[in-house]
Design a protein around this nucleic acid. Structure first.
Lengths: 383, 383
DNA sequence: ACCTTTAGGCAAGAGCCCTTACTAGAATGG
DNA sequence: CCATTCTAGTAAGGGCTCTTGCCTAAAGGT
């Protein structure tokens, strides 16, 4: 359903729109003269001058003091006020926390890495997150106005909390980023799982660039996937799109079973855990004896079953495979070969980005920060 | 990615927006005085008067000649011009063609039904469609400005043509509604399959009203489903979302096989066809002997496998079951019971609407016609 | 007959954007 | 050194839209 009620027209709306044009121009280009903004937006010079004056008065935009050089009169460069603040981008995995601050221009202002011991627990992760956020907050001129968090666990869409699904590993553990960051970050905290952010990154700058419908299959310690439909990562009602542990597929002897169950039967799960034993699996994928071939064939068919579901329910233009062991060279070609014999084959590609979850979260953070700035025509109070 | 470049502000834009407010008001209410429009939109009376005068001059709006009665000065009623035309809504199944004309108010102006003999072929269906469209075009004051077509086959999203997938029945047959209707309909022809339209209908007015994430499972002669995500029916890259014939699920003896294969093994397909034999299946669902129970158990488990895929990849808030034999009372409760023992159960409901595909297509037609009218009201963007 | 109520019109005013024309200032070229 | 040329920015005026406030017209109630 499209918007039923168009917005009420008013002169204030026009002014706001002009200001938005100016701000967006300065977000795309670090410094511009009023004449350049005018040329870029197609809005007349006097109108731009008015808007810049308004925005400068409100503290959103500052005269940098720099001047143009070259023929003609020197122009004054304007840019976004540094006090507009930044967004926190954080990725939490069982191995550690990575956090950075990013401003409305998309520039990264600092990066903090905290390693975590295995099984350190969500409490420790939460502390590492807060510490990192605090350090970053001290390094930037403004304050942290929002946060975008990637977590290596399913995320409840409504609450932003990490959720534990049956028979799926709970890698990070019970954690509520919004609560944890409430004191350090003044605005909204957006949380999603790493696979979804990775898919976003591959969509914007990776192997799925420009592909508006694709599926990203993550094969690592956990099993997950992301569904990008009409250019957007779809999350579903609770945010659990792509939690494929229980997807019905083919196991050994052609028996139907849950995807995660296949790994259990093959002995590829870590002891007393529902997580995949990645080292064992990688070692197995490297071998070429008969037993390894047999296991690999089972895996390929199981993954094929998952892809048949993805093709049926998402109709992707391509399938991207990522994760710790998914893009293993021999595996992809084997899946591809199996897949090409199915009734609806789809091109298969390995993910190409490193730390895609951070890239994806960062792009969302920049987007969100920009729209926050445009929405609130108000300067961030000094830190 | 949200819009990067906001629209350029101008007074013309305000005027256009005012006109759109007026038109949308008159689309929601058949006749209104200028004062009523003003009250409804919150825009001042003089502005509305200007706009109505403009639109009346352009022929989009007409003074009906009627006047208000009651206290106070009598006001003139205005309404949309009947010459604005209508949209064609058509549903094509192997059994026949149903077509109607609908105007911008959502009123149905005529309905034509043409029965088709079994296996009549797509040629005959195309002729029936053209004939029906021609009849309807003669019954309305304006002309047919667009068409929305429902077809009981998968539809290619890019071309609007019906496509034949391996191992799925090709019920209507090779048909290109856009070409067929080119002479009768002056504008765009939107085509989608009946399951997607049915899901749209259930979303807007049926059992999934207000539910922005759900899955509609169609169990009839063909097997299909629709995925509604974030309030919109998702179609995927080629428009083949929901073509679940090859989805890997559990068959007899717990063997993994394609969904449609289960029916083949159970002997529930029509002879030398990939279509489900609905009468046989219905008869079987009504029986209660041991063999029927056994077959039913297999079906329930197979459908359960499909639903596990839907839950994993779409995370619906609910599952709606429609189709000729899907909403069979005993079947739904059996699926529900089986489903409730899975790790991620989701509420199950039977579809409630009759001819949902027509309802869904009609609502899209009205929406599209309205937006077409609003678009043509604004000055044509120069080439 | 008079009052109340409502639709609609008119006039004044403010705001926003645009065009045109002008001024200011910096590099270039003789 | 001065004139030229080119560009940034400003000023003035105009057109357009929306709003407020007041007025008239017309119908119903008292």
């Amino acid at each position: 359903m499209v918007r039923m009620t168009p917005p009420k027209p008013s002169l204030e709306m026009l002014r706001t729109l002009t200001d938005e044009n100016v701000l967006r121009s300065l977000m795309a280009h670090p410094r511009l003269t009023r004449a350049e903004i005018s040329a870029r937006t197609g809005i007349s010079k006097p109108t731009i001058s008015d808007s810049v004056q308004r925005l400068a008065g409100a503290g959103l935009v500052v005269d940098t003091g720099e001047r143009t050089t070259g023929r003609g009169r020197a122009g004054s460069y304007y840019s976004l006020s540094p006090l507009l603040g930044a967004a926190l981008v954080a990725a939490i995995t069982p191995h550690g926390v990575v956090a950075e601050a990013v401003d409305a221009l998309g520039h990264v202002h600092g990066r903090v890495r905290t390693a975590l011991e295995a099984n350190a627990g969500s409490q420790v992760a939460a502390e590492a997150l807060v510490t990192a956020a605090g350090q970053l907050a001290g390094r930037i001129p403004g304050r942290l106005r929002l946060a975008v968090v990637s977590a290596a666990d399913p995320v409840d869409r409504g609450t932003g909390r990490l959720v534990h699904l049956p028979d799926a590993p709970f890698l990070v553990g019970d954690l509520d980023p919004a609560t944890v960051l409430a004191t350090t970050v003044s605005g909204p905290v957006l949380v999603d799982n790493d696979v979804n952010w990775a898919a976003r990154a591959e969509h914007q700058a990776g192997c799925a660039k420009g592909v508006d419908d694709f599926v990203y299959l993550h094969l690592g310690q956990g099993l997950g996937c992301a569904v990008v439909s009409d250019g957007v990562v779809r999350r579903g009602h609770r945010g659990l799109v792509g939690e494929i542990a229980h997807l019905c597929t083919a196991g050994p002897d052609g028996l139907a079973m849950a995807f995660t169950e296949v790994f259990a039967v093959l002995g590829l799960r870590r002891p007393s855990s529902t997580a995949i034993d990645v080292p064992v699996l990688q070692e197995l994928l490297a071998r070429h004896d008969e037993q390894a071939e047999r296991v690999r064939a089972v895996l390929v068919r199981a993954i094929g079953g998952v892809l048949s579901a993805a093709v049926s329910l998402a109709d992707p233009r391509m399938v991207v495979i990522g994760g710790e062991w998914g893009p293993y060279p021999g595996l992809i070609t084997a899946i591809d070969e199996h897949f090409s014999r199915t009734p609806r084959p789809v091109p298969l590609t390995a993910a190409v980005l490193s730390s895609p979850e951070l890239t994806g979260a960062r792009s969302r953070a920049v987007e969100e920060l920009r729209s926050l700035i445009v929405r609130t025509a108000r300067p961030a109070p000094e830190a």
